[in-house]
Design a protein around this nucleic acid. Structure first.
Lengths: 103, 103
DNA sequence: TTGACATATGATAAAATTATCATACATCAT
DNA sequence: ATGATGTATGATAATTTTATCATATGTCAA
């Protein structure tokens, strides 16, 4: 319940790969190879990042034959993203003016 | 409004220094030198990290003489932290069992 | 049981973040 | 104006995070 764990949970959502996975799973559950294909990412990369999301309870894993199916933990991650979205909506312009975002 | 900005906002909260600052400001606004003292951190480190929080709209800055006073943007960061707290409460045990947290 | 498919994992290289140092800038009191 | 105080900023070193590669593990079908 410490700041350490706080940071850990937040870090899980502060990475492109993991955010892409989360966004993809928003629509429906998928197995690892599907995630790889749809996001055009390497398998080990996806697995490593899924593990992080799993550890933090942001996704859950089931099984379908030899496939491991991952789905969002909708109870927690969706409301969380909603709040962040709202904040971003309000402050995006501000952030852009500060020219902090590159790319 | 892209994933890039999303990541940027979340990253602002995924760092020990910035989280400590945010937690400190929860009680009341403070100037840079006060933050340094209370958290026992170097001044430039605090300033750099405050800038990040400022860019993202998580804190606001005023002035009092030659002191620059920072305060929390309570509208957005407090509800956000509340949700994260709730999630952590639920999943902390799980996370510990996975032995992901070191220290 | 063997081979093929699906995923996980450990080690390390590559990339990104962070802290630190030196110094610049800004404000106030004299 | 000058010095003292308070804060910001740029460059780079130190640290952390991430991706990649090689390989291990697990599951199923034959």
């Amino acid at each position: 319940m410490s700041k350490l764990s706080y940071k850990y949970f937040v870090k899980a959502l502060s990475n492109d790969t993991r955010l892409e996975i989360v966004h993809l799973l928003r629509a429906k559950p998928r197995c690892v190879s599907e995630i790889c294909e749809e996001l055009n990412l390497e398998q080990s990369r996806v697995s490593h990042n899924l593990k992080c999301l799993l550890n933090c309870g942001f996704v859950e894993a089931g099984r379908n034959g030899r496939k491991r199916v991952y789905s969002l933990n909708r109870n927690t991650i969706l409301p969380l993203m909603e709040i962040i979205d709202k904040h971003i909506e309000k402050y995006y312009e501000h952030l852009v003016k500060c020219k902090v975002l590159k790319e």
